[in-house]
Design a protein around this nucleic acid. Structure first.
Lengths: 141, 141
DNA sequence: CGGAATCCTAACCGATACTG
DNA sequence: CAGTATCGGTTAGGATTCCG
């Protein structure tokens, strides 16, 4: 039993992931990427911040902090670490003085970015629709 | 000043929404839809739960609770209310005994569903990739 | 059946201070 | 510059009970 490692377990069967099941690993993954900071960081690194130029670019820590208004150091660092661990972004340290740290989307990160980008665009495009519905809803109280 | 209502404010200018700005309404909207329960409810009502049949369908409260494993009454009700308020779903009460309540995506809801569906699919499809990166990352500790 | 209301605790998260 | 560490408040969110 103890001789079987995680990689072997994974390859032993073609698992059918189902995010609706609470116990399914993909559900926990969905929980993680359904996070506002994750979405905003991916959008930033995807290039959404550069006047809709929209090409993935590497960004420094301070650039990200400036672009993503309202994020605390803690949450930004925490989010970046988890994204790095999951293989969605790379972290490159250049030992200048002071140190320079660049973050960049990996190929895997870009594949998720294409979706988070739509999420951000949807929010911006349908803001008025949602607002109108809210007023309507709040009126019939 | 006090005579100008929200609707007039909205129509007075074509606002350029930018979700990166903390003060922007679209940012708050993005924060809301970047929520796991929102994503799961939209996916459920979009038809993702029906063996990938994938056609939007109306569902009862108890059906949703059963499909979305692990959600509490409180969070499910809370999420459904906010989605209804935002105009993404409709809530229909049929006064049978006991009462029957059906939830269904609106047109606006369907437009967001197309994106949340991709989010859920991404999680399921890339689960193995992410797991592999995590093991690798945790190994160099 | 489909909630509402209450209580309560875990976690998230922001603010602050310190470091290489 | 790019973090880490700690503390404390807010809130998400679970469990339970009751209701139309």
């Amino acid at each position: 039993m103890a001789t079987r490692n995680a990689a072997q377990k994974r390859s032993q069967a073609k698992i059918e992931y189902n995010a609706f099941l609470a116990v399914c690993p993909s559900r926990r993954l969905l929980d993680r990427i359904s996070d506002k900071w994750v979405v905003l960081v991916l959008c930033a690194l995807g290039g959404d911040g550069a006047g809709s130029a929209g090409r993935p670019a590497s960004m420094r820590y301070s650039e990200l902090a400036r672009l993503i208004a309202g994020v605390s150091q803690k949450m930004l660092t925490q989010t970046l670490r988890s994204l790095e661990r999951d293989g969605l972004i790379t972290r490159t340290v250049t030992p200048t003085v002071p140190v320079t740290v660049e973050y960049e989307l990996t190929e895997l990160g870009v594949s998720l970015y294409t979706t988070t980008r739509q999420l951000r665009m949807w929010a911006q495009e349908h803001m008025n629709d949602v607002d109108r519905h809210r007023e309507e809803y709040d009126a019939d109280s």
